[in-house]
Design a protein around this nucleic acid. Structure first.
Length: 157
DNA sequence: GCCAACGTTGGC
DNA sequence: GCCAACGTTGGC
């Protein structure tokens, strides 16, 4: 059964426009250095799962589109072994990689649903992204939350 | 730029 | 294994 997720990215670093502009509209979701987020990518995500693409540290922050998981399974994040990468992790053993990632493919743009709008919707009061101090960059989304956000997107057009 | 919330590190 | 210090995230 397909699941739903929300993945955060700072548009200054990597925006949904950047993903859309790639030849295959697909990219490695590299740089995640949080164990909880890694575990979700490594253990729970399946090819074809749908993802809300969220712009954090943006004005305003919010959901800007839909992507989907495009790799059959998670695999080691190559940037952890790249000394020139800002994501280099000298403590990660190539024989036993610490960080995993999935490929993410662009699906469609949505009219921005701002964090403010998400917070204002009582049906989304349990959604992870609206919780205070919710820093996790890869989050599960329930089917009800997914549908509700899509309904909000239609109104935003 | 500030700072609250939270995760990680490392001394003990 | 505790917990203080430190670093990062991310809204504002």
């Amino acid at each position: 059964m397909a699941n739903y997720w929300l993945m955060k990215s700072e548009p200054n670093a990597f925006s949904i426009e950047d993903l859309k502009a790639l030849p295959k509209q697909t990219d490695m979701w590299d740089g995640v250095r949080n164990y909880q987020a890694r575990n979700i990518m490594r253990d729970q995500m399946q090819k074809g799962d749908k993802v809300f693409f969220y712009h954090s540290n943006a004005t305003p922050p919010g959901i800007v589109g839909i992507a989907e998981i495009a790799s059959d399974e998670a695999y080691p994040d190559p940037t952890q072994f790249d000394e020139k990468s800002k994501y280099y992790d000298p403590k990660s053993d190539p024989e036993k990689p610490r960080w995993f990632l999935v490929d993410v493919k662009f699906v469609e743009d949505l009219p921005m649903i701002s964090l403010e709008q998400l917070k204002a919707n009582p049906k989304l009061s349990e959604m992870k992204v609206v919780q205070k101090g919710a820093r996790l960059s890869v989050q599960p989304v329930t089917e009800a939350e997914w549908s509700e956000v899509l309904a909000m997107a239609k109104v935003n057009i």
